[in-house]
Design a protein around this nucleic acid. Structure first.
Lengths: 196, 196
DNA sequence: TTCGTCATGTAATGGGTTACATGATTAC
DNA sequence: GTAATCATGTAACCCATTACATGACGAA
């Protein structure tokens, strides 16, 4: 690997370019719309990442169409190479903490369309148990606490717990949907084993 | 300033030590209970921060009680100095982005008890408009988007928007409460101008 | 022609984590 | 006596941001 680049950003870039070739500036806008509620990337991280991916042969500059004046190159449109697609599949297959931690879960979820059903399920469950651990830890620590907290601290705790509990419920629904779909797909295959 | 240290961590440490003197290990547990739903600090950041604060005279080692065997020093309990308290007040008075961004809002809110009512209100409003900007940006970007998104991307967007909208509503309630209280306090002062 | 925004890029810095190293104290 | 956890600390790394520098292009 030429330059070290964050897994999150790498996945974000490869995943976006898999949908359609893009140049850096627009890529950033896409990402910040896709993940706008969770995080935002700056050019200072995006361009070095593109450079590094280019050096490693995971992306290439797309040739401009013939009718473009030669010698002009204001936009640099990148697209995935075969290695890039392979690397993307690798990243999308990893069902570990690197997929369900706070910083990375969003981007993994955003590309679930390209992720195997089994992996999807494991990531959703991984995130859920990660959040449940957190709830447990804070609740028991809070129960141990002798001193009574002031109203602002309490309100922060309450809001925090509620937010995480909501995400857990959301994950529960998603997991149920995934499981139901898996069952359905299995039934379809049983009924018509020859269809691919 | 001796070592550069993050504002967030600095505030977290000074704020915690203002409530009661603590040693590093327990300080970390406190912080990770206080902010457990939002973030977590590691020793690798906490101890250097304490060192830096010590060098700058914002905290000092507390003398152990007399009955402790001399020469023993397994825990190092820190407490705030006068300069430390001053610095803490400075940090708590800042009503700018450094108080209402994602990384810092939680810790500022946690110490609202020690923050002036006016500053509290400005921070809450600042955070609210920050979130509203974000909602605006994503919504218009989404409206401009021609291509239809897949169901996972849509679900992520929906959940993200909903979460931020919920936080905005939470902030609205807090702001209303703060304003009502301000009015009440003003009324109290009007009724009895001599009381301090 | 000038202003906004599109577009690409780099150097310095920031604010943390991870992994490691070390040793004391407590509970069994 | 040994395992867990309490307790302190450092060096190397990571993943980004900020601030800056540059320039093309379209619209008023």
């Amino acid at each position: 690997m030429t330059g070290p680049r964050g897994n999150v950003l790498e996945l974000a870039v490869l995943g976006s370019l898999h949908e359609t070739p893009l140049h850096g500036y627009e890529l950033r806008k896409r990402l910040n719309t896709l993940l706008g509620m969770f995080r935002a990337f700056s050019y200072g991280s995006l361009y070095p990442c593109l450079k590094s991916l280019l050096n490693d042969g995971l992306i290439v500059e797309e040739e401009p169409p013939e009718d473009v004046v030669l010698g002009r190159r204001s936009k640099i449109v990148y697209k995935l190479t075969a290695e890039g697609k392979e690397r993307l599949q690798d990243l999308l297959t990893q069902a570990g903490p690197s997929a369900w931690e706070d910083e990375s879960f969003g981007i993994h979820f955003a590309f679930f369309r390209h992720t195997e059903a089994e992996v999807r399920l494991r990531i959703l469950e991984g995130r859920r148990s990660r959040l449940e651990e957190r709830l447990e830890a804070v609740r028991t620590a809070l129960a141990r606490t002798r001193e009574r907290l002031d109203s602002y601290t309490l309100e922060l705790q309450r809001h925090g717990l509620e937010s995480v509990e909501r995400e857990v419920r959301w994950l529960n629904e998603l997991i149920n949907t995934e499981r139901a779909q898996a069952v359905q797909n299995q039934a379809d295959r049983d009924e018509d084993p020859d269809s691919q």
